[in-house]
Design a protein around this nucleic acid. Structure first.
Lengths: 341, 341
DNA sequence: CTCGTGACGTAAATCGGTCTACATCAGACC
DNA sequence: GGTCTGATGTAGACCGATTTACGTCACGAG
C-alpha cells in the first residue's frame, strides 16, 4: 500500500512542462490557452489521474457545490424536492450536497450554518425557523433560495406553494362532502407561529379562517403533534374516542399517513373518519392508501430553486425573485361523505 | 447592506491582541493555552461572530465533514440509514453531507468522486458499482465504509445485511404458504452480476438456489425492472397475464410496492398474488399496505457505519472490519396461502 | 547564581489552488 | 526599422486556516 499522495496542480504542471497558472487556465477553460498547450496539459492530467482539490479552489474561487438543508429526511416530500434539484443540476458542473438537520428538532439552523461554513456557492433551505434578519444577512453574503417561506425578502429568493389556496381547496372539499366536525392535525407551536409565514402556520390559519367563515367556530379543534408519522399516529389515536371528528385535515402527508394508520388501528375506516393530507407524496396515490391530498409538486419546486440559484451565481442577479407553485386537489379514497348520524 | 466580509482568524487575533496561532489553539482545544488567553479569545470570537472557514481548515487539517453517497434518494430504506447515521453523529462535531447519485444511473460513482474531491474526513457509500480496486485505492487514502457490499476488503470496512439468510427467510416463508410459481423481481443485470457481491446479486442467487433445491427449476422466472416503484409497477403489470405467478419476491420494498400497486391495478389482491419485499421501510407496516418483508434495520446500519468511520478517523484503526446485521422476516398481509387451482 | 524544565506564545512555512500583473513574441502597420 | 497590438504564458501574491520550530518567562533544584 504505497500511500502516495494524490497529484496536485504542481505535479501536473511539471509533467506537462508548463506553469501552475497554465494548468489552472486549462481546468477552468479560461482565456489564453493555445490548443497545443491544452493538449499537453490534458494529457498530463489524464496520466496523473489528477483531480483538483475543492477546498483549495474554494479558498479563492468557488467550490462548485450547492447545498440544500433538509429538516427531516424521512419525509418523502423533501426527497421529491431533492430529486427535482438533482435533475436540474445534471451536467452543470455543480455538485449538490444535502445537510440533514439534527433529529432533535433544531429545525436545521445548525445544518444551514454548516453549509455556509463549507463555502458552498449557494444554499437552498426548507423553511427552517431562522429569523428573517439572519437570513437576510446570509443572503447578502451568498445566494440563498428558501423553499416554503412566504416572506418578502430582499436578499434571497423564495419558492413556495400557495398554501392559502391549497388549504382552501382541502377545506372546500371537506365541506362539500358534508363535514363539519373537522380537526386540524399540525405540528408544534414553534412552526405554526402566526405571522411567521411558515407553510404550517398558513395552513393552520387557513383552517381556522375556513371553519369560521363556515360558521363552525365551535367545531375548531387543533391537534398538535411531532414531526413523524409515528407521533401523528399516537396523537390521533387518542383523538378517536366517542367525541371524534368526522374528518382530519393534516398539515402534511406524513402526518396524514399516521392519522390513517391510527384510524385503521382504532378499527375505523375513512368511511368513519376522512383524512386529507398535504404534499401528494408518492405513496399517497397507492391504491391501498389512496390519500386525498394537495399536490404542490415538490419536483418542480426543487427544479425552480436550482434555476434561481444558478441565476444568482452565474448571471449575478441580485433582485429577489419569488416563485409560487399552484397547488391542486387530488381527491382520493381517504375522504368520503360525512357518515350519517 | 454592508457587504462586510465575514471575520477571519486574523480579525479575532487582532481583537483579542494575540497571535493567529493562539486563536487556532483555542479553537482546536490544543495544548498550551492559559485560562486567561482562552477567555479573551473566546470573547473575541463571540464579539465578531467568528466561524472558521472549513475550506481553509481542510487545506492542512481536517474538514470535520463525513460524506455519504446515496444511489437513489427516493428509496426510504436509504433514508433510514441516514437517520441512523445522523443520530450517531450527534454531538461529535462532525457534519454529515449527503451526495445523491445522478438520476441517469451512474450508480453514484460520480457522487463518490465528488465527496473525495471535497476532502471529507470519511466516506460512507451504498453499494455503488465501483471496482474493488478503485475502492481499495480510495480506502488507502481516506476512511471508507461500504454499506451492502459483501467483499472481503483490505482498506475499507463493510456493513451488510445477511442477504443470503434474508432471502432464505423469504423463500422459506413462500414455500410454507404453498407457493411454487414464484417470480423474482429484480433490477438490471449490472447490479445483479453474479459474483459482484451486491445485495441484489445475492438475493437473486438465493432465489435461484432456493427454487432449484425445492425442485422448482422450471418455475424460475426473473423479471428485470428499473430502480423506481413506477418502473416496477409497469413491469409487473405485464407479468400479470393468464400465466401469472402466485407470488413475487421483490429485490427491495420499493419494487415490492410497485408490484403491490400493479396487483391492485390488475384487479387482483394478495390473495391472488403474494408479494414479499426486502428492507422493511416504514410504510410496509402500514395496515393498508401490510407488506411482508425482510427487516434489515437500516437505522442500525447507518449507526454502525458512522461508528466504524469514527474509529478509523479518531483511533486510527486500519485493520478492516466487517459488520453484518441479522435480518428478520416480517410476515404481514401481502403474503397468503397459495390460491386453490 | 546557573541551569533545566514546563508552560505559554509567536513567527513563519505550508496546504493547493486562483488571479493579477507582467513578460515575451509574432505579425501588422506606418 | 520602429511601434503597436493581440495572443500566449509565467511569476508570485493571495485565500484562511494549521502546524512546526523556536523564543520567553517563571520557578525549582543543585
Amino acid at each position: 500500500m504505497t500511500d502516495a499522495r494524490a497529484a496536485t496542480i504542481e505535479d501536473v504542471a511539471r509533467q506537462a512542462g508548463v506553469s501552475r497558472a497554465a494548468v489552472s487556465k486549462v481546468i477552468r477553460n479560461a482565456y489564453g490557452v493555445s490548443p497545443a498547450m491544452r493538449e499537453r496539459v490534458n494529457a498530463a492530467i489524464e496520466a496523473l489521474d489528477y483531480r483538483p482539490r475543492v477546498a483549495a479552489r474554494a479558498m479563492r474561487g468557488s467550490s462548485f457545490t450547492l447545498g440544500i438543508e433538509l429538516p427531516h429526511i424521512g419525509n418523502p416530500f423533501f426527497t421529491k424536492i431533492v430529486a427535482g434539484a438533482t435533475t436540474a443540476l445534471q451536467g452543470t458542473g455543480y455538485q449538490l450536497i444535502i445537510a440533514p438537520a439534527d433529529e432533535n428538532g433544531d429545525e436545521g439552523i445548525r445544518a444551514l450554518g454548516a453549509l455556509a461554513d463549507r463555502q458552498v456557492d449557494g444554499i437552498i433551505a426548507i423553511s427552517p425557523l431562522v429569523s428573517t434578519e439572519w437570513l437576510e444577512r446570509l443572503g447578502a453574503r451568498m445566494p440563498v433560495v428558501m423553499i416554503g417561506r412566504h416572506d418578502r425578502s430582499e436578499h434571497y429568493d423564495t419558492v413556495t406553494g400557495d398554501d392559502a389556496e391549497g388549504t382552501r381547496l382541502a377545506m372546500t372539499h371537506l365541506f362539500e362532502l358534508g363535514h363539519r366536525r373537522i380537526a386540524h392535525l399540525t405540528r408544534s407551536e414553534d412552526v405554526t407561529e402566526p405571522g411567521s409565514g411558515t407553510p404550517h402556520a398558513i395552513r393552520l390559519d387557513g383552517y381556522l379562517a375556513g371553519m369560521r367563515s363556515a360558521g363552525l367556530e365551535d367545531e375548531i379543534r387543533v391537534v398538535r403533534t411531532g414531526m413523524t408519522e409515528d407521533a401523528a399516529r399516537l396523537d390521533v389515536l387518542s383523538l378517536l374516542g366517542d367525541d371524534r371528528p368526522t374528518a382530519i385535515f393534516a398539515g402534511n402527508d406524513e402526518l396524514a399517513l399516521g392519522a390513517l394508520r391510527a384510524v385503521g388501528e382504532a378499527g375505523l375506516s375513512p368511511a368513519d373518519v376522512s383524512v386529507v393530507g398535504y404534499d401528494d407524496v408518492d405513496i399517497a396515490s397507492h391504491p391501498a392508501i389512496s390519500l386525498t391530498t394537495i399536490d404542490q409538486s415538490g419536483v418542480e419546486m426543487g427544479d425552480r430553486a436550482i434555476r434561481l440559484l444558478l441565476e444568482r451565481i452565474r448571471d449575478a442577479r441580485t433582485e429577489p425573485t419569488h416563485f409560487s407553485v399552484t397547488p391542486a386537489l387530488k381527491a382520493r379514497g381517504s375522504t368520503r361523505a360525512v357518515p350519517a348520524g
